[in-house]
Amino acid sequence: MRQAPAAPRDRYAGLADRRLAAILAAEDTAEEYGLSPHTRSTCYVHRCWVHECVGDPLHVLVVTGHRWCRGCERPVEVAVDVTPPGAVHVFCPGCGQAGSAANREVRQACRTSLAAMHGGAAPALYRLPEA
């Protein structure tokens, strides 16, 4: 006889920001069903909005080019203005460029993160359709 799967634990129960916790959990689930981890507005490792930790060296992915300048072979910088409406700048400190598709994903994920943090709508990638 098969046992029922255990109820999933709430990884984010300790977070005071319940909106953040809910979006973290929703993105975890969406990722299991195909959401690219590079388009998340939250970071499950740091348990925060992605724009708050995108500067961490852990977010430099040389293989995919996320936060990486292939021309200079160095990490790119991300500058985020958290004051609404907020601006996100991704640039290489060597050549000043960072126009790869991967770095455009970084910029868009940060913009989505800023909007969500300030109470914007949940990203359409995992929003349930209205009845």
Results as ranks from 00 to 15, higher is better:
Thr29Pro: 00
Val60Lys: 06
Ile23Pro: 01
Tyr12Val: 10
Tyr33Asn: 10
Leu35Gly: 00
Pro75Lys: 03
Tyr33His: 13
Asp10Phe: 09
Arg9Ile: 15
His46Thr: 07
Gly71Asn: 14
Leu20Pro: 04
Val76Gln: 06
Ala25Met: 09
Val80Ser: 02
Gly14Tyr: 09
Ala26Pro: 00
Glu31Asn: 02
His46Trp: 05
Glu27Tyr: 01
Ala13Gln: 13
Arg9Cys: 13
Val60Pro: 11
Gly34Ser: 06
Leu58Tyr: 14
Ala79Pro: 01
Ser41Tyr: 06
Arg18Thr: 14
Thr39Met: 06
His38Glu: 09
Ala30Lys: 03
Glu27His: 01
Ala87Arg: 14
Val82Leu: 07
Ser36His: 02
Cys48Asn: 06
Val54Leu: 10
Leu58Phe: 14
Trp68Thr: 05
Thr39Gln: 06
Val80Arg: 00
Asp17Met: 01
Trp49Phe: 10
Ala79His: 11
Trp49Cys: 03
Tyr12Leu: 05
Glu77Leu: 11
Arg19Lys: 10
Leu35Asn: 01
Gly86Gln: 03
Asp81Thr: 07
Val50Ser: 02
Pro84Val: 06
Cys43Leu: 03
Asp10Ser: 09
Arg11Gln: 09
Val54Met: 13
Asp17Trp: 03
Ile23Met: 04
His66Phe: 14
Arg19Leu: 08
Cys53Val: 11
Tyr12Ile: 09
Tyr33Ser: 12
Gly65Lys: 08
Val78Trp: 01
Arg70Ala: 15
Ala22Ser: 12
Arg18Phe: 02
Ser41Ile: 08
Thr83Met: 07
Ala30Ser: 03
Glu31Asp: 00
Ile23Glu: 11
Gly14His: 15
Gly55Cys: 13
Glu31Ile: 02
Val50Trp: 01
Pro37Asn: 05
Cys53Ile: 08
Gly34Cys: 06
Cys69Phe: 10
Tyr44Trp: 07
Glu32Arg: 05
Thr39Asn: 03
Thr42Ile: 02
Ala22Phe: 01
Gly34Ala: 09
Glu27Asn: 00
Ser41Glu: 08
Leu61Arg: 14
Glu32Asn: 03
Arg74Phe: 05
His46Phe: 13
Ala30Gln: 03
Pro37Tyr: 02
Ala16Val: 11
Thr64Cys: 11
Thr83Glu: 14
Val82Pro: 08
Val63Met: 12
Ala13Phe: 09
Arg19Trp: 10
Leu20Cys: 07
Asp81Leu: 02
Tyr44Phe: 00
